[in-house]
C-alpha cells in the first residue's frame, strides 16, 4: 500500500534502513513535491539491522514483484551488506507456498533536504476519503485549488473555464466515529493556492489511514500526513505564489 501510494510521485529512491526502521525521503522530478515515509521497527514482527544501509530501489520494479504476493502472505525483506539485490519472500502458512524474488538494487545519489521545524498557522484533520473526494471533484473544474483556513472552517475553492466550485468543512466532532470528525487548530488565518494534480496524486495514500492531517502556513509548503499505527507517509507540496 505504501509503495502504491508513492510510486507515481517518485521513480527511484533509497530505503534507508537503520535501528529505527525503514525510512525514505524523495522529491518528484519537478522538485515541487516531496514524500517522506517511516515504517517503525515496532510495525514489523521481526526486524534486524546490523548496519545502516540504503537500498536503492526502482519503485516500479518493486511494485511488479509485490503484485506476486497474496494479500495475507507474510512478507520478508532481506538484504546483505553492500547488497546488489533485495530479496523478497512471500509465505502462505496455509498451503506452505514459498515465493522467492530478488530485485536488482541501484546506486542512488540522493540529496536529503533539511525540512525546517514549522509552527503551522493551521492544522486540520479530516476524513481521508472526504479529502480525496474534494480534490478529485475540484480537479474536474480547475488545475489549482485555494485552501483557506479560518475560524469558520476550511474552504477549498477553485475556478476554471466551465465555472467555479467551493467546498467548506466546518469543525465537527463525531463522538461515535472520531475518524469522521473534522478538527481545526488555528493560530492564524491561512490562505494558499496549490496544484490539484499533486494533491490528487497524494490521495493514493488514502487507504493507509482513515484520517489525513493538513498543516498550513502562509507562503510555506503544505504538509499532508497519513499516520499509520507504526509509521507515517508525509507529503510536502510547494505553493503557487502570486497572481
Amino acid at each position: 500500500q505504501v509503495v502504491d501510494a508513492i510510486k507515481d510521485l517518485v521513480q527511484d529512491c533509497n530505503f534507508d534502513c537503520n535501528d529505527s526502521g525503514i525510512a525514505l525521503q524523495a522529491m518528484d522530478n519537478s522538485h515541487v513535491a516531496l514524500v517522506a515515509m517511516h515504517l517503525k521497527t515496532e510495525g514489523f514482527s521481526q526486524y534486524r539491522c546490523d548496519r545502516n544501509i540504503a537500498l536503492g530501489v526502482n519503485l516500479a520494479s518493486l511494485q511488479k514483484v509485490l503484485r506476486a504476493a497474496q494479500n495475507e502472505d507474510l512478507l520478508t525483506l532481506k538484504a546483505e551488506d553492500a547488497p546488489d539485490v533485495l530479496s523478497l519472500v512471500f509465505e502462505n502458512s496455509e498451503n506452505d507456498r514459498i515465493s522467492e524474488y530478488d530485485i536488482k538494487l541501484m546506486d542512488i545519489d540522493q540529496e536529503h533536504l533539511g525540512i525546517p521545524d514549522t509552527e503551522y498557522g493551521a492544522t486540520v484533520t479530516l476524513p481521508s476519503a472526504e479529502f480525496q473526494r474534494i480534490c478529485r471533484d475540484l480537479m474536474l473544474i480547475s488545475e489549482s485549488v485555494g485552501i483557506e483556513a479560518t475560524k469558520e472552517g476550511i474552504k477549498f475553492s477553485c475556478a476554471g473555464d466551465i465555472g467555479s466550485g467551493a467546498v467548506t468543512l466546518r469543525q465537527n466532532a463525531n463522538v461515535d466515529k472520531p475518524e469522521l470528525s473534522t478538527t481545526i487548530e488555528l493560530q492564524e488565518p491561512v490562505a494558499l493556492t496549490f496544484s490539484l494534480k499533486y494533491l490528487v496524486n497524494f490521495c493514493k495514500a488514502t487507504g493507509l489511514s482513515s484520517t489525513v492531517t493538513l498543516s498550513l502556513s502562509n507562503e510555506v509548503p503544505l504538509l499532508i500526513e497519513y499516520k499509520m499505527e507504526h509509521g507515517f507517509v508525509r507529503f510536502y507540496l510547494a505553493p503557487k505564489i502570486g497572481d
Binding site: 522529491m27 522538485h31 540529496e111 493556492t193 510536502y236 510547494a238 503557487k240 502570486g242
Partner: peptide, 14 residues
C-alpha cells in the same frame, strides 16, 4: 495566474 514554486526555495540541502 499564480506561479508554481519549488521546494528548493523553502527546504535546504544539509
Amino acid at each position: 495566474g499564480a506561479r508554481q514554486s519549488t521546494l528548493g526555495s523553502f527546504f535546504t540541502l544539509p
